[in-house]
C-alpha cells in the first residue's frame, strides 16, 4: 500500500493505482473527459492535470501512478486556467449547434464549459478540414465537426470490443476519426455509447427527446443468454433509443451488440399482434379476449375429457420471463394435469 495526500487528505491506495484512481477512492473529484473506468487511460483531454509537490510542472492524473508520500493538489488557479484553456481550445472549430445536437443536455463538453465558465469561442473562424468518410456502420451517424478527438471511441473499439475499426487519422488540427482499412465494423455501437459529445449518434429513429423529456428504464436484453443491462429510452410510450450509461454495471459493463443496441424496432412493428385471433371458417380472425379465452378453455376441456390430460402438451419459452414460465408449467401441471411441458432449450 502507498500513502499519499491529495488536497491535504491522506489517501491510501495499492501500488499501481493512478493519482486519479487514488483521488476517486477518496471521493475527490478531478475533472476528466476522456477517462473511463473500463478502459486504460487515454490521456488526450488534459483536463485531469494536477500539481505534485516537487515536480516542475503539472502531470495528468489519469495516467500518472501514485507514489509514496506524494503531495497532490487538484485545485489551483493554475490548474483551473489550464482546464479552462483546454475546454476553450476544444471549442475551436466546434459548431455551437447544441440546440439541435442529440447530446444536448447530457454532453460532457457542454457541462464542463458551463462549469468552467467558458463564455467565448476563440477564433470562431477556424474549421478543421476533415475528410468526412461515411462512418463504417450504417447504424451510427458521425458528426465529425462535433468531435473533440478524445479517442474514447477508438480506444473502446480496440480495447473493449477487440475490433479496432476506427482510428485517429491525419495530423494536428485536421485530425479526425476515420475507418481503418480492411477491418470490418460490427455495428455494436460501443463507440456511440462512450462518446462524450454528440459526434456519434444513432441513426435508428427520427424521434428525439432531451434527457429530461424521456424516461430511462433499465431492463435486461431479450436476445442471447448474456443478459446485458441497458436503458430503454421512452418518449410518449414509445422506445426511441436504447442506451447504456452505466459502464460499471455487470454483466456487460455498458457494452452491447448490434442486436441489443439497435434491434428493438420490432416492438412497434405493424405486424405486432394486438388482438386475440380465433380460426373460424379456416381463417384466423380478430376477436375479443373473452371469446378467445373461452374458445381455448373449451377446446382444452374437450380434449382432456376425451383423451386424458397427457394428450395435451405445452411448450414453454426460453424467450419469456421466469414468471411467465412458472405460471405456464403450473398451469399444465396443476390445471391440465400433465407433465408434458418442455421448451426450446434444445434448439
Amino acid at each position: 500500500m502507498i500513502n499519499l495526500t491529495i488536497d491535504g487528505t491522506p489517501v491510501q491506495v495499492e501500488k499501481g493505482q493512478t493519482i486519479l484512481e487514488a483521488a476517486n477512492s477518496a471521493g475527490i473529484r478531478i475533472p476528466t473527459m476522456c477517462w473511463m473506468k473500463k478502459m486504460r487511460p487515454i490521456g488526450s483531454c488534459r483536463m485531469c492535470v494536477v500539481e505534485v509537490e516537487g515536480l516542475g510542472k503539472p502531470v495528468s492524473a489519469c495516467d500518472t501512478m501514485a507514489a509514496a508520500d506524494m503531495k497532490v493538489t487538484t485545485q489551483s488557479e493554475l490548474l483551473h486556467g489550464m482546464r479552462r484553456d483546454a475546454l476553450s481550445l476544444m471549442l475551436v472549430g466546434h459548431p455551437l449547434d447544441c440546440p439541435v445536437c442529440d447530446k444536448g443536455g447530457e454532453c460532457v463538453l457542454q457541462d464542463m464549459v458551463w462549469e468552467f465558465g467558458v463564455t467565448e469561442q476563440p477564433t470562431p473562424g477556424a474549421q478543421p478540414t476533415r475528410d468526412i468518410e461515411r462512418y463504417i456502420s450504417p447504424m451510427i451517424k458521425q458528426w465529425a465537426d462535433r468531435c473533440v478527438l478524445c479517442a474514447r471511441c477508438v480506444t473502446a473499439c480496440k480495447e473493449v470490443k477487440g475490433i479496432g475499426c476506427i482510428e485517429i487519422k491525419g495530423n494536428g488540427f485536421d485530425s479526425y476519426i476515420g475507418p481503418v482499412e480492411g477491418v470490418d465494423c460490427i455495428s455494436c455501437g460501443e463507440c456511440l455509447s462512450v462518446c462524450p459529445v454528440g459526434a456519434l449518434t444513432d441513426g435508428i429513429r427520427d424521434e428525439k427527446a432531451r434527457i429530461w423529456q424521456s424516461k430511462r428504464i433499465t431492463t435486461t436484453c431479450g436476445y442471447c443468454g448474456v443478459g446485458c443491462q441497458f436503458d430503454l429510452n421512452v418518449l410518449n410510450d414509445k422506445i426511441i433509443r436504447v442506451t447504456t450509461t452505466d459502464h460499471d454495471k455487470l454483466p456487460n459493463f455498458g457494452s452491447l451488440c448490434i442486436k441489443g443496441r439497435f434491434a428493438w424496432e420490432f416492438v412497434d412493428h405493424p405486424d405486432r399482434l394486438t388482438k386475440p385471433l380465433v380460426r373460424r371458417d379456416g381463417e384466423l380472425r380478430e376477436t375479443t379476449w373473452e371469446d378467445a379465452l373461452h374458445t381455448a378453455a373449451k377446446k382444452i376441456k374437450e380434449v382432456r375429457d376425451a383423451h386424458g390430460p397427457d394428450s395435451i402438451a405445452g411448450f414453454a419459452s426460453a424467450r419469456c420471463t421466469n414468471e411467465d414460465n412458472y405460471v405456464f408449467q403450473k398451469f399444465f401441471r396443476a390445471v391440465i394435469g400433465t407433465n408434458n411441458v418442455d421448451h426450446c432449450a434444445r434448439l
Partner: peptide
C-alpha cells in the same frame, strides 16, 4: 445459453 432465458425456463420447471 443461446436464448435470453433458457436458463430461467429450465430453472422454473419448463421441463417434463
Amino acid at each position: 445459453r443461446g436464448q435470453n432465458n433458457v436458463q430461467g425456463a429450465c430453472d422454473l420447471g419448463g421441463l417434463p
